[in-house]
Design a protein around this nucleic acid. Structure first.
Lengths: 199, 199
DNA sequence: CCTACCGATCGGTAGG
DNA sequence: CCTACCGATCGGTAGG
């Protein structure tokens, strides 16, 4: 008789599903990710695939986690782990621009696309996306506050305003890259950031 | 025998379809707009509805036009038609912020949502969205150039950079309003614009 | 503008 | 992990 799949095999299959799901979802949206299509592309049955997650919503939530994992690997964990503060913030923003510029995921930033897709809905997927956004802003907030107390940003810096403007630069970068394929956009992003992050 | 519907009635029905379509599409996306759902909400048959447009893609293109019509009515045509230049640019940006702040459409800016949804695809809907974006940037470009030649913006102003940054402010505004329901976002947008549009 | 219908695909389940 | 199936819905058409 054929042996059961090992736990390692099961996890590997699950990871294969997630990797492909993230690629599809970042290019065509979390709803464009359908069970049937995903199963066909992976060469497995819908039932076999769904067995790993249970429902489509559970799959979507797992994809959100996977997207966060990729972003964290490519941006904050990629920069030198120097103490929080302005140099770290500058490095993080540069890694962020580079992440979008290199098109690590087809279709650009998964979170930008998924947030725009789900922000008008309710439910666990929307809440998960909002939570990830909040966590990331928290990171930025910590760096900015440190930069201010270090004297590297003006003492009257409006922290939330700066977070708002940094996010605007990144949203515009994603927009110009994805819709216009504008190769000048990363330069524009870097210039805008330079002005924002200079005392 | 019952009389044929008049041309005026037909146009009125078409407009009813478009108004409802735009509301659905801006809240849930241009793909979330399905013929069956739209027909149910409007109390008509799918066939009767499709007769006005022919295909779903043609309906989507008509919705893009309708969204442009609403945006043009609410933003550039709403401000005093003073000569192009910095005062006009400031008025236009304020009308733009106000348009998003008042949530004229459920789900915020139709173009932001639709662009994020279609930027990874190909076809006529994507092209129409890209065209509308380009037309609007052209408007902004004209105002900025005039402001520079009027001496109201610095002579070394990087026009495309400024367009990039204004768009970033608006994308961030839509993001914070829709995902976070952050009532401070319009104030942040106005502050960012004030800095961008001061010599 | 309608009824009646088409094949395809959706998410999901039963049972193994 | 599979086959075989479910009801619902998709965009669209025939015919009136």
């Amino acid at each position: 008789m054929s042996p059961r799949r090992s736990v390692a095999d099961t996890l590997e299959t699950r990871q294969r599903i997630l990797d492909r799901s993230l690629a599809i979802a970042s290019a065509e949206g979390l709803e464009g990710l359908t069970i049937g299509r995903l199963a066909t592309e992976l060469g497995m049955s819908k039932a076999g695939l769904l067995g790993h997650f249970g429902t489509k919503e559970a799959l979507q939530l797992a994809v959100v986690d996977q997207a966060a994992e990729v972003f964290l690997r490519e941006v904050p964990r990629k920069v030198k782990q120097m103490p929080s503060g302005l140099p770290r913030l500058i490095d993080v923003c540069e890694a962020w621009v580079s992440y979008l510029e290199r098109e690590v995921l087809p279709g650009g930033c998964f979170f930008t696309a998924a947030t725009a897709e789900f922000d008008g809905r309710s439910g666990r997927v929307r809440d998960a996306l909002a939570g990830m956004n909040a966590l990331w802003r928290r990171d930025l907030r910590i760096h900015i506050r440190r930069a201010v107390s270090d004297g590297d940003l003006k003492p009257d810096t409006d922290v939330e305003q700066l977070i708002y403007e940094i996010l605007g630069v990144m949203l515009a970068l994603n927009h110009f890259l994805q819709l216009e394929h504008d190769s000048a956009a990363p330069r524009r992003a870097r210039q805008a950031l330079k002005r924002l992050l200079t005392k």
